[in-house]
Design a protein around this nucleic acid. Structure first.
Length: 838
RNA sequence: GGGCGAGUGGUGGAAUGGCAUACACGCUGGACUUAAAAUCCAGUGGCCGUAAGGCUGUAAGGGUCCGACUCCCUUCUCGCCCACCA
């Protein structure tokens, strides 16, 4: 253990002090401006990791900074405690998920306290407690009533390893977001939330989020995936069935030479009936069904398909086109049917080549067209010889009355014409699907629904909430909802006819729990309502939210949806929950994510034992700007530790000087005589530092440069080498302590006390710089000749250009570079530089 | 395949039109010490030069500008997101 300042006693002392004086316990106060600072609450996995340390340290700096600026700061913490890992751990260790989770929570809470974070622990929530999840159930019932929660049977994402369903948002690269196992499709009856009812507002209101990172906005836009196009109605020749297809490239409609249905398309059955192709098509569909999503969506796999035997009529030219069934068309997107334009879509192109289907060029790229014409005259070019589809813009050809138009113009005209003639309809299409929320797992919120043979499916009456999750349930891990094995749970009375009934045995996805926890923090003990409207109106929206980028489309989209729903039902008075968002970068080790299997875990607890929480906090913040990745190196700790000791000695030394026969007043006059210049410089440096640190924290969270500015100030005090002690030195040292306090709160409190202050440093207002002191009478100007730095002169700040020119041209070094050349231009950037162009 | 972002010393990074490399790590040297650690001080992009000083340098190439790490174009590399999305 390195020797240095006694961090252990100091950190324990101030953590006790904050708790005893209830410094972070807040309540609404109309007299003060509020500030809600929130970090994404953790999943209680056991121990905190370096990612938590970073996330919560960033939030803590902001919260403490705002407190010192006089804001009434709400800074809560809780635990996202339901979920699969607890259940998996329980299966593995034959323990109870509840007990395991509570043990983890206790451990983590203790670690978070050791980091000195400024949380109001009286507001702690855990989503696995009935006093929390009963409101999950309540919100679910509100949604059920409004028709936003519904049950339907359809193909769902199924993780064969976790043995549960997954939301679309939880499928990453065709695999389960948790265990990466390839996701399969399964037909199941499941609960959904109609998030698609909110798609327009979810997209539109992204514009309001001016203080969100561009990346996250783009990711949400992509996820919502709005695109405009045309639904075109093809008619099947023998049955007369209308087959709508969706396209964003209606300009290529004249080049459609076949259409393709997804294997799951409901019309397929009817179309193939009694045709010679029937057997072959059915065999093909059966084969596709068995494929996992990963295999089916792999780009390098050859597109497979079969001819259905049926033909449809292209409504723009009444041409019959063959109907195919192929695996590259997805039922979930658009209408589940496409018009294929092999000349202008690469996938169609490859498919057409493979199966010998015709191609027709309808958009000509001018250069390609010239080439094609020349080759055609020679008789060597045929469309069949195209090597790839032309997907870019060009001029319409073979397109009836639209020939000669640029395709971008034709697109609009064709769409309008189709609407007039009822061949098609302009539509917008979304990528967003409804949110599947039921899970076949134990450790979650029971879905409050009862099934009665006579009355059907009914909501649990509000007065009967919460539907308690039974304890001591056997979890086999062998699939099926564990709750369905608990007879006492399943068996219930119908709320309507009082007859025998069954409970729903699926539980809610945990993302449901975290979609509104920030509202619960405003009145966490309310047992009458989901939250007090008044308290939410005071604290919300969250002014600053800090968390990982991995939630860009999951939690952050769901929370926005919940907020909008609660706005519509009159519970909140705002549309967006999070005003400002900071997504911190990951903490890596040797360029890799830390994980047990890689054996590259850095344990924060060990660092706290060795150096203390302040050193860890400082090292983390100083390593990189918050959004950037950090490749963790323990070396950074040494630097932070050294710096804190340097500051510690500075304060001690100054106190010794002040106490030991160096009274300030006398020292001041002597100091002026001896070191007047450097003492005045110190004063300016102090105020420059206050300005820089304040702006760095406030504007862009540039904690790394804020800290480096404080280091510079410390270096400057050291450069006086204690030859002087004066009011200016005292001012500098106090500024260092205050400015450091949001970053390293324990040591700052201790030094503040040593400097003679009786109250917590948090009660001291954040310092303001004095602009008068920043003004300089003499400024040093850089002199360039032809843009190259050649000299530097000191001039008075308000010098006139004429006089400056004289001085510059008289400068020896400048003369040397100009010699006898004529001065063409003389550029002055006031207070900065002069460029002489010759 | 599409979209977004990044590329600066030995290392983390700073500067977003005006002194490139702040601050820190590392390294080298010095002071203190019997010695070491700790601490304090100095030096530290490359090349030429005893020095003064000069040249050069922000992935590569080009452009705009009095002046470009910063803006524009082309190329390369890396990262992230989306993707049989019609």
């Amino acid at each position: 253990m390195p020797s240095g300042y006694p961090f252990k006693e100091i950190e324990a002392k101030w953590q006790r002090y904050w708790q005893r004086h209830r410094i972070f316990n807040v309540s609404p106060d109309a007299a003060r401006p509020k500030y809600y600072c929130l970090e994404m609450f953790p999943y209680p996995s056991g121990k905190i990791h370096m990612g938590h340390v970073r996330n919560y340290t960033i939030g803590d700096v902001v919260a403490r900074f705002k407190m010192m600026q006089g804001f009434n700061v709400l800074h809560p913490m809780g635990f996202d405690a339901f979920g699969q890992p607890a259940e998996n751990a329980a299966i593995k260790n034959k323990a109870d998920p509840g007990e395991w989770t509570h043990k983890c929570i206790d451990w983590m809470r203790n670690e978070l306290k050791q980091m000195g974070f400024s949380y109001d622990w009286e507001r702690e929530v855990s989503t696995c407690l009935p006093e929390y999840y009963r409101w999950n159930q309540w919100i679910f019932l509100q949604m059920l009533e409004k028709g936003l929660a519904y049950k339907k049977s359809s193909a769902v994402n199924w993780c064969p390893s976790c043995l549960t369903t997954l939301a679309n948002e939880e499928v990453v690269n065709g695999g389960c977001w948790r265990c990466s196992t390839a996701v399969a499709q399964k037909d199941l009856e499941q609960w959904y939330l109609k998030i698609t009812d909110y798609q327009d507002r979810l997209l539109e209101d992204l514009k309001q989020l001016k203080y969100w990172p561009e990346r996250v906005i783009t990711m949400q836009e992509n996820w919502l995936g709005k695109s405009w196009g045309v639904e075109i109605y093809f008619r099947e020749e023998t049955t007369g069935e209308i087959i709508p297809v969706f396209t964003t490239r209606v300009d290529t409609i004249f080049g459609a030479t076949y259409i393709v249905l997804a294997p799951e398309h409901p019309l397929v059955d009817k179309l193939i009936k009694d045709r010679p192709q029937e057997k072959k098509v059915r065999a093909f569909i059966e084969k596709v069904r068995k494929e996992t999503r990963t295999i089916r969506s792999a780009t390098d796999v050859k597109k497979e398909g079969v001819f259905s035997g049926a033909y449809a009529v292209n409504p723009v030219n009444n041409e019959p086109v063959p109907i195919w069934v192929a695996d590259y068309v997805l039922m979930e997107y658009g209408t589940g049917a496409i018009m294929a334009v092999p000349a202008h879509d690469q996938r169609d192109f490859l498919f057409a080549k493979e199966h010998g289907l015709p191609m027709r060029v309808v958009i000509k790229n001018l250069e390609a067209a010239r080439f094609a014409e020349r080759e055609a005259r020679r008789g060597s070019w045929k469309p069949e010889e195209m090597t790839e589809a032309h997907e870019g813009d060009g001029i319409q050809v073979n397109s009836g009355q639209f020939d000669g138009l640029p395709n971008t113009v034709a697109k609009e005209k064709i769409a309008a014409w189709m609407e007039e003639t009822a061949i098609g309809k302009k539509t917008t299409n979304w990528r967003l699907r409804d949110w599947l929320i039921s899970r076949q797992r134990y450790w979650g919120t029971p879905i409050p629904v009862i099934y009665c043979d006579h009355c059907g499916s009914l909501p649990v009456p509000e007065k009967d909430l919460p539907v308690l999750l039974p304890k001591k349930v056997k979890i086999s891990g062998e699939g099926g909802s564990p709750l369905s094995q608990v007879k006492e749970f399943v068996k219930t009375k119908c709320p309507k006819c009082k007859g025998k009934a069954r409970r729903e045995t699926d539980t809610m996805a945990t993302f449901f729990d975290s979609s509104w926890y920030f509202l619960r923090f405003c009145s966490p003990k309310n047992d009458k309502e989901v939250f007090y409207k008044k308290e939410v109106a005071y604290w919300m929206p969250v002014d600053q939210y800090v968390g990982g980028i991995e939630h860009a489309v999951l939690h952050l989209l769901y929370s926005r949806f919940f907020t909008k729903f609660l706005k519509d039902t009159g519970w909140v008075n705002f549309e967006e929950p999070f005003k400002r968002l900071l997504t911190q970068g990951m903490v890596l080790k040797n360029g890799e994510v830390m994980s047990k299997s890689k054996g590259n875990i850095v344990d924060p607890d060990e660092i706290i034992q060795k150096y203390g929480a302040d050193t860890l906090r400082l090292a983390m913040l100083f390593a990189a700007p918050p959004e950037a990745e950090i490749d963790w190196a323990d070396k950074g700790l040494e630097g932070a530790w050294r710096f804190l000791n340097r500051v510690w000695r500075l304060a001690e030394e100054s106190l010794r000087l002040e106490a030991g026969g160096c009274p300030l007043r006398r020292a001041r006059s002597e100091a002026r005589k001896l070191e007047g210049g450097s003492v005045l410089d110190l004063r300016r440096k102090t105020h420059e530092t206050i300005k820089k640190v304040t702006e760095d924290i406030e504007k862009e969270f540039k904690f790394n440069t804020a800290i480096s500015a404080i280091m510079e100030l410390v270096n400057q005090v050291y450069s006086l080498q204690f030859t002087v002690y004066s009011q200016e030195v005292k001012e500098a040292i106090e500024a260092v302590v205050i400015l450091l306090s949001p970053f390293v709160p324990h040591i700052a409190e201790e030094m503040w006390e040593k400097l003679g202050y009786k109250e917590s440093i948090l009660k001291n207002p954040w310092p303001k710089y004095n602009p008068e002191i920043l003004k300089q009478d003499i400024v040093s100007l850089v002199i360039q000749v032809n843009g190259k730095m050649r000299s530097r002169i000191d001039v008075s700040a308000d010098i006139k250009e004429e006089e400056l020119k004289k001085l510059v041209l008289a400068d020896e070094k400048v003369k040397k570079w100009i010699q006898d050349k004529a001065v063409k231009n003389f550029i002055v950037v006031p207070g900065r530089l002069v460029n002489v162009v010759v």
